[in-house]
């Protein structure tokens, strides 16, 4: 275990060292202390390493991650794991707005609540939130799975494409073109796998599935008000 203190060393040093780790590195375990809400911690990683961050992080922690496993022992600021490609990011606390924005792959687990715009424009990432999510989540979400064990805020899945949304609790309101859909066996299977991998204490049968009504896919004048 390598320990890196962000109070005595700079962000640039931290990210340089983490970027220097290649696929075959033997320094696979890193701990970052004194995060104190700093931005851009452990961004752009591309190696199968584990990074544990003690304390809360600022904007874009784990941004554009590939391969790495990043654990935040605290809460995460805006845009955690934005545009993630692969790997895993786990937030022990809450996540601010834009969690997992535009993510292409990998798994983002938020053990607390996520704020607004969780999974905005997601493009293949899987996001599991143990608590609740805020308004405008999964706005223009393209693909991937968003699992919410608690409640969802206003305008869930507005202008949704093909991402799948699973919510166990209540949904304050659905956004334009987002509807409840039938839960089929293949969806229960996806859910089961994601709940297990994210350590969520919930059963697939307790969830409802939401998806795109596909009414905005090709312009129709009768739907103009929804644009």
């Amino acid at each position: 275990m390598q320990t890196f203190d962000l109070e005595s060393h700079s962000l640039r040093e931290l990210n340089s060292i983490l970027h220097a780790q290649k696929d075959d590195t033997n320094q696979t375990s890193w701990e970052v202390i004194n995060a104190r809400g700093s931005h851009a911690i452990a961004v752009g990683l591309d190696a199968p390493i584990e990074v544990t961050i003690k304390g809360s992080t600022g904007y874009y922690c784990g941004g554009m991650n590939k391969q790495a496993t990043i654990n935040v022992h605290g809460s995460a600021g805006p845009g955690v794991a934005e545009n993630m490609m692969s790997g895993t990011v786990v937030i022990e606390g809450d996540a601010s707005q834009y969690a997992g924005a535009t993510g292409h792959g990998g798994l983002l687990v938020i053990k607390g609540n996520a704020s607004s715009r969780c999974g905005i424009s997601m493009k293949g990432i899987d996001i599991v939130v143990h608590g609740n999510i805020g308004h405008m989540s999964a706005f223009m979400a393209q693909s991937g799975n968003l699992v919410v064990c608690g409640d969802a805020g206003d305008a869930l899945g507005d202008s949704l494409y093909e991402a799948r949304l699973f919510v166990r609790g209540s949904v304050k309101s659905l956004g334009a073109d987002c509807i409840e859909k039938e839960m089929r066996p293949e969806h229960l299977e996806i859910l089961n796998d994601l709940l297990m991998r994210s350590g969520a204490d919930a059963k697939p049968e307790e969830f409802k599935r939401y998806g795109s009504a596909r009414q905005l896919y090709n312009f129709d004048v009768d739907n103009a008000a929804a644009y």
Partner: peptide
């Protein structure tokens, strides 16, 4: 459909942080 605002920041104060992230990556 393409969005008119960036999905994960709004305004110059956030932009400064976005630029930091891109530079760090």
């Amino acid at each position: 459909r393409s969005a008119c605002r960036h999905p994960d920041w709004t305004g110059p104060d956030d932009l400064e942080i976005k630029i930091l992230e891109l530079r760090e990556i």
